[in-house]
Every structure is written in C-alpha cells, then in structure tokens.
Simulated assay, not measured.
Amino acid sequence: MYEMIVGLDVSDNEGYANYRHAMTPILSAYGGSFGYDFQVSEVLLSQVSEPINRVFTIRFPNELQKNKFFQDPDYVKVKEQFFSQSVRHTTMIARYDSDAS
C-alpha cells in the first residue's frame, strides 16, 4: 500500500467538497481511497510557512496506481475545475510504501 499524508490550505470549503465529490469515483477506479481526514483549527508545529487547515491521508495499492490517477485526464479536469479555485496551498507531509521492507 502506498500512502501520502497531505496538508492543505482550503480557502473555499464548498468548492473543495465539490472537488472531493467529483474526484472520488476516479480515485476509486485506481484502487485509491482516503484513510483519515481532518479539519485543523490550530497548527502547533510545521515545517512550512504556509497555513494548513486540512490534513488527510490518501492511499493507493502502489505508487504506479497513484501516478496513473494523478495523470488521468478526467482527474486533471476535475482538479482544474474545483481544486485550483478552492485550495491556496498544498503541503506534502509524508509519502511511504507500507509494503516495503
């Protein structure tokens, strides 16, 4: 399982909810899913200067499926339509392959 922990600075909660709704079927088609999802009210320690108000995990069967998902033309359209207007900044907190030894 390949998993990422991501922090966002969401500026439009409704627009971001529309993004999640539109992209979830595409994510599922690649075996992907969300594990955890938090709205954050206070960040006590951060490695970046940009604010973070949403943290989630997203997982895939493997890194190849993750790459295919993010390159999928339908996903790219959804991202351009909803994500770009509703998220000010993305912080990649961690990436890991839980099956790696």
Rank of each mutant, 00 (worst) to 15 (best):
G32T: 08
Y30L: 00
S33I: 02
T24I: 11
D37T: 09
E42F: 02
L27F: 02
D37R: 14
L45C: 02
V48G: 09
Q39L: 04
Q39N: 12
H21M: 14
I52C: 09
N53F: 01
V43I: 14
T24L: 13
F38N: 08
L45K: 13
R20Q: 13
F38D: 03
F34W: 08
S41K: 07
S49L: 12
R54G: 06
Q47T: 15
N53A: 01
H21Q: 15
L45S: 09
F34Y: 11
M23V: 02
N53D: 09
S49K: 15
I26R: 07
S46A: 10
S28R: 15
Y30H: 10
G35Q: 06
I26E: 04
N53Q: 08
L45F: 07
V40P: 05
A29C: 04
L27K: 08
Q47S: 14
Q39T: 13
E42A: 09
E42P: 03
M23L: 02
S41C: 04
I26A: 01
L44A: 03
R54F: 11
N53G: 02
S49W: 06
V40M: 08
I52H: 00
R54E: 14
S46W: 11
P51E: 10
L27C: 01
I26W: 03
Y36F: 10
V43T: 12
V48I: 14
Y36N: 12
V40L: 07
E50H: 14
I26Q: 06
N53R: 00
P51T: 13
M23D: 04
Q47K: 15
S28W: 00
Y30K: 11
S41Q: 12
S49P: 01
P25F: 03
A22Y: 02
L27N: 01
Q39K: 13
L45P: 02
S28I: 11
L45G: 03
A22K: 10
M23F: 05
R20N: 03
R54K: 10
F38C: 00
P51A: 09
L44W: 03
V48K: 13
L27G: 01
A29L: 07
M23P: 00
L44E: 00
G32L: 04
T24F: 08
E42L: 04
F38L: 11
Q39S: 11
Y36S: 13
P25V: 08
S46P: 04
F38H: 14
R54C: 01
S49T: 15
E42D: 14
